[in-house]
Design a protein around this nucleic acid. Structure first.
Lengths: 215, 215
DNA sequence: AAACAAAAGTACCGTACGGTACGGTACAGC
DNA sequence: GCTGTACCGTACCGTACGGTACTTTTGTTT
């Protein structure tokens, strides 16, 4: 297990300050973001924004990518795995997922991406970018651990992608759509731990090799 | 079991035509909806829109409520329930949920509501309305069947709200966020049936009184 | 047919925002 | 010191849109 970090998209420090300013404005109100607003918050000129990022969409895409590059990903890459290790990986994953999905910044970026997921059906629109760096980066991240678990006889043999999707459902349930729609669910760290443990327990119940105790 | 229909919010036929026009425009591009666009699509004047709906937000809220009023809700309201009945209710619910969440109209309205979930923290904003008529109307709808199932010894005794949320997670998994972000998942009716059956099977596995066969 | 109401159509206003241009300033290289 | 570059601040332009006012059409009542 090691922590790897994706490339910071090679922005200068000043440019990163601008992107951070954009992020802070997005968190405050993703819908009403304006170029002049970003310029003021970042204490830079609009012309600089256009010079660096091309246009409004370029700035927003750069901001989404920039935030994605900041997320450190933990990968499991061993052949064999013990029960305790697998449980630890699953628990950590569930907690990370719930923490991220309920964070201000994730909510803001998802709102932004969802709002304009319709325009520009190409793969460079914001919806695709968020999907790629969000949901579609989490699956492959957990896959090795799941397959090692199957190989070690801890999990039933099955399609690891399907297993992952069910685990995702058990972890997230209705939380994501609720927070996106403005339901303030106010999770404490304890709540998240409890939820993660429930999800892992239920997942073992569905996909574990031997049947553990109920709920 | 009976089909009840919520009040159509007493709009005249002509007004409903306007709301339908608004819906069709929302489906085409929820982000770029304009008053003049609605007026043209509905062959009415802007002034009429303002007279009938107050302002832009009033029109959008009315449209969301109007659509919600069109959804017929099936309720279970018996004291006792058989295994076959419970399975039927669960399957029907899962299929309905997946069908709705992946429909153009639900996607458009959720995008609209999510985009501006931040402004107006009062309970009359669009996020609250969609939550109330979407996620928060599905729970109570299934609750009686779940509790009847517990009473009949078909399901383990547990908090029916918690049981529902896990069922929701098993049914929806990552589907909702993916379609909202623009991932075209193209479900056929067969796909939806398969998904629903898997979810119900897994739900029974977690909450069923006797342990059925795996997956 | 006259009279009235409702609503379509159109013209208009104010504003907000994306994008551009330009003047001014700090600083690096020569 | 001179020149070029990078950047800030601000003013400006064009457009799109929300909202209002006014004129014309349509249709209904008496």
């Amino acid at each position: 297990m090691e922590r790897i970090e994706t490339a910071p998209d090679d922005w200068t420090e000043r440019q990163q300050q601008v992107l951070d300013a954009t992020l802070s404005l997005l968190i405050e109100n993703a819908a009403n973001i304006t170029m002049i607003g970003v310029a003021r918050r970042a204490s830079c000129s609009k012309e600089t924004l256009y010079k660096w990022f091309g246009d409004r969409d370029g700035l927003l895409v750069a901001t989404v990518r920039y935030q994605a590059s900041k997320v450190k990903v933990e990968r499991f890459d061993a052949d064999s795995i013990t029960q305790a290790q697998l449980t630890s990986v699953l628990l950590g994953f569930a907690k990370d997922l719930l923490t991220i999905l309920t964070s201000d910044i994730s909510i803001a970026l998802n709102r932004l991406a969802i709002a304009q997921a319709h325009q520009g059906a190409d793969s460079n629109n914001m919806g695709s970018i968020v999907l790629q760096n969000g949901r579609f980066s989490t699956g492959p991240r957990l896959k090795p651990a799941l397959e090692a678990g199957m190989k070690a006889g801890l999990l039933r043999q099955s399609d690891s992608e399907e297993a992952f999707r069910s685990f995702y459902g058990l972890v997230v349930r209705d939380v994501h759509i609720r927070v996106l729609l403005g339901d303030t669910m106010s999770f404490t760290a304890d709540d998240i731990s409890t939820e993660a443990e429930r999800a892992v327990h239920q997942f073992y119940h569905l996909y574990g090799a031997q049947t553990p105790s109920r709920i």
